[in-house]
Design a protein around this nucleic acid. Structure first.
Lengths: 260, 260
DNA sequence: TCAATAGTGTCTCTTAGACAATATCGC
DNA sequence: GCGATATTGTCTAAGAGACACTATTGA
């Protein structure tokens, strides 16, 4: 048993000393790839259902810090934009016959008391994060057998109410995208007009006229044309663009409306 | 000691059996009166600082239900619109030398254990509610000596981080008001154009041209002119208007933009 | 008669949104 | 050559926003 495993076992047994009782966090980590919005999911070894990367809050940290740690661990990214979007609090929201005290005991090979803290009901704080798909290499670890991206339109079976949490995160993201620029975190630093256009079409889930859309972004100085063209390309080389970060941050701060 | 008192004493002593540990709710109840945005605050007998009406969540209810109960009790209103707007979770966010275990013991005249559950740190879920000022008669009870409206721009000393919670609620309300109609819950059923105009000026905290503003509301069929005029009036009798509730609900649902 | 408030219309300018044909490249 | 994709401009209609004077009433 290595050090990492020891820490996890200790947390399972003694977690209620370190963490707030009955409070968890769940992170919906979004990525965008090939016209599909993706969510990062994980599956603990021995379990059938997938889960959102989540965790508990140490009594010495804020909810944001707790969320940040989890997202950083799973994505290996450093600069992460997090948004608290909703609290999930329903009696029995995390009763699930596929994950029980007995199951956990078996999985970890340890005896756990009947009233183990992990099987209380939890109030979970939902965060969503926007990440650049290509920078994330999802990998499992000894505890999480699998960790991978899933198309939001074709999710596997999820534990507890995690499917609902993803749905609510999608709603919150859509709402957010209507009024704030979002591409900076989801796209590579250099991108083409068709790329950012289809990103918005995907998230807002509707057709947008590409001429009007790109005209608007350029007119408002949110994005800038670069001299470069994409060297590799199946067809005509498209021009590359970047965000004007100053303008971008200003819009984020002022909460101006971007697209309808 | 009457029944109500008994219940409260029981909850103070045994609350951790009924409630989620370390989780509370705080409600920012807004009202509007004479061009001022008001917040309903309460002050427990024997305490100097004021607090937001809040409470704890029974393990058998949702956070919304818990919030609803508190707001209903304090306002005596039945149809309340609640919005979860933010979670407050910072170590020591509710340490306050003006409210300690010793103080509570004195106030209630009972012995409380050192590790009493109410003096753990709490993660608080913030809700805001919109209510019609004139329908609310704030009254204290045996536990809350005072309960009254306060202008958001002139708040008394508040316990814990409640001042911050009010500020965040104001931000959330402002954000909300930009994109959704709000007057239905805050204004009397019949109101004048200057009234709804100044409501928006107050909440958005900026000057709005009344001609353009009312033209817009009427054009979009959000409000309708009534035949009546206000009978009592310091000056010329203004016409009364009401919301077209159908249109109003439609806008709420679709999340369309109302005012910039 | 004076002060306070209610009420009302026009013009301009910006921009959302509709709309389609051409050029380039890989195969 | 053909298929796929990138790129580009004009027009219209709607609406945001600027702007000020008159009528009425109570004191």
């Amino acid at each position: 048993m290595d050090r990492k495993e020891k820490i996890i076992i200790d947390q399972i047994i003694n977690g209620s000393k370190y963490f707030y009782r009955n409070i968890s966090i769940d992170n919906v980590i979004f990525g965008y790839h090939e016209r599909e919005l993706k969510v990062l999911l994980q599956r603990p070894g021995g379990m059938e259902k997938w889960t959102l990367p989540g965790g508990y809050i140490l009594k010495t940290e804020t909810a944001e810090e707790a969320s940040y740690k989890v997202v950083r661990y799973r994505t290996k990214l450093e600069n992460i934009v997090l948004h608290q979007f909703k609290v999930f609090c329903r009696p029995d929201r995390n009763k699930d016959e596929s994950f029980t005290l007995k199951k956990l005991s078996e999985m970890q090979g340890i005896e756990l008391p009947e009233d183990h803290w992990m099987f209380d009901n939890f109030v979970s704080i939902g965060f969503f994060a926007l990440t650049e798909y290509s920078l994330v290499r999802p990998t499992g670890d000894f505890y999480m057998e699998d960790c991978s991206w899933w198309d939001v339109n074709a999710l596997p079976k999820l534990l507890y109410d995690h499917a609902e949490i993803v749905l609510e995160a999608l709603k919150a993201l859509k709402q957010f995208a209507y009024f704030h620029p979002i591409g900076y975190d989801l796209l590579p630093q250099k991108f083409t007009l068709p790329e950012i256009h289809s990103l918005y079409e995907t998230i807002l889930n509707k057709k947008i006229d590409i001429r009007n859309f790109t005209k608007k972004l350029i007119n408002m100085r949110l994005i800038q044309k670069l001299a470069e063209q994409r060297n590799i390309g199946a067809h005509r080389s498209p021009y590359l663009y970047t965000f004007d970060k100053e303008k971008y941050d200003q819009l984020i701060k002022e909460g101006d409306v971007i697209v309808l």
